[in-house]
Design a protein around this nucleic acid. Structure first.
Length: 326
RNA sequence: CCGCCCUUAGCUCAGACUGGUAGAGCAGUCGACUGUAGAUCGACUUGCCCCCCGUUCAAAUCGGGGAGGGCGGACCA
């Protein structure tokens, strides 16, 4: 795979394709980032963007992980001290997961977001942005509740981060789209360059196959799941024998194969008793999907396989968490 | 600063006028059926009724005080 293909793999969307092609043509020294609100335990949502960061490293880019402590504070996630602690745990889990330590720069938001210059730029941005616009940009991040002033400042800071971290590419889930569009619109107003952005898909809810899998509701697979818990969760997942279920539903089991398993493994071996046809090896997601669709691969076998591969991906982080907590 | 509304199961809410220690839908859990899950049947679980004080034999319900949330008025700095 060349740099462009690596960058684009499993991306839901890229803005704009031309800008990304240019980036891919000369990735040396180029910087990409994802910002995360510190969380004590990584879940598959985090790992989806982490997979993209690994792709980008492989494509030759430098990767910046923003441990967004100030953002977490603005979002009511606790005291700075608590946030710092969970951020440190998050960093350790990312490294355990497979981000290359010497190619990954971890930055705390508070290292630069409280500087005078940054703050003044922030106020300029506040002056340029309507409440309505900022609130819409934040809508995906904060469900339901009435917005606080902190919530509308939040996306404005994300905008500035792209400049202040000296980035060439902003990465996030598709839920970050509005924030990134705001950034593309506003950065030139401050005299800064527009950067391309890349959005990863959001995996459907595991049990229902609808909408988005979220950490706040429904079943989430995380670094702290034991092998047994993981098997139970995967086994209870919605999984009709097709890649395209009726209505708006998705097949989350296939999505997990596509976005989490195949990017990290050369081949996937389905072990099954002779009674059901014996073992099968897949070298691409497409082949596995086709077999599920045709009935050659039974959903139950797909689930068992998925659970064991996810378990392998999560194991180092789980071990790291255990160390941290002991 | 003033006024109005809201607070009951994980969620959305009913019950309050006419006191008698709580309900629905959804969610969830468990079975049956499928070599998975879902769908479909069958069964089941859940509550500091926001807090404190008072009235009463008895308060989710009435009175007073307080907290949290929402909306509006006033102000036009």
């Amino acid at each position: 795979m060349d740099a462009y293909e690596l960058i684009m793999r499993n991306a839901e969307e890229v803005v704009t394709d031309e800008e990304v092609r240019e980036l891919a043509s000369n990735p040396d020294g180029k910087r990409a980032y994802v910002g995360y609100e510190p969380s004590g335990v990584l879940h598959l949502g985090h790992l989806l963007t982490a997979n993209k960061l690994i792709d980008l490293q492989e494509a030759g880019l430098e990767v910046v992980v923003l441990l967004a402590d100030v953002h977490a504070y603005l979002n009511g996630k606790g005291t700075f001290e608590e946030i710092r602690e969970t951020a440190e745990q998050m960093r350790a889990q990312f490294l355990a997961y497979g981000l290359e330590e010497d190619q990954t720069e971890f930055v705390y938001g508070s290292e630069f977001q409280l500087d005078e210059e940054y703050t003044l730029d922030l106020h300029t941005l506040e002056l340029e942005t309507t409440l309505n616009r900022a609130q819409r940009a934040m809508a995906e991040i904060q469900g339901g509740e009435t917005a606080k002033v902190s919530h509308v400042v939040y996306p404005l800071m994300q905008t500035l981060d792209i400049e202040y971290l000296d980035l060439d590419l902003a990465v996030g889930g598709i839920d970050q789209r509005k924030v990134h569009m705001l950034a593309r619109e506003e950065l030139p107003e401050l005299g800064y360059d527009v950067r391309p952005c890349l959005h990863t898909p959001i995996v459907a809810d595991l049990t229902s196959g609808e909408g988005k899998m979220s950490s706040s509701e429904g079943v989430t697979i995380s670094m702290e799941d034991s092998t047994d818990e993981l098997e139970d969760k995967v086994n209870s997942a919605f999984c009709p024998p097709t890649a395209d279920p009726e209505g708006d539903l998705e097949n989350p089991v296939l999505e997990l194969f596509e976005y989490h398993v195949f990017p990290r493994f050369e081949e996937v071996v389905v072990e099954r008793p002779d009674e059901y046809g014996g073992d099968i090896t897949y070298e691409s997601y497409e082949a596995l999907e086709a077999d599920l669709e045709s009935g050659e691969l039974h959903p139950a076998d797909a689930k068992g396989t998925l659970a064991s591969y996810l378990d392998e991906l999560i194991a180092p982080g789980r071990e790291k968490l255990r160390e941290i907590r002991s």
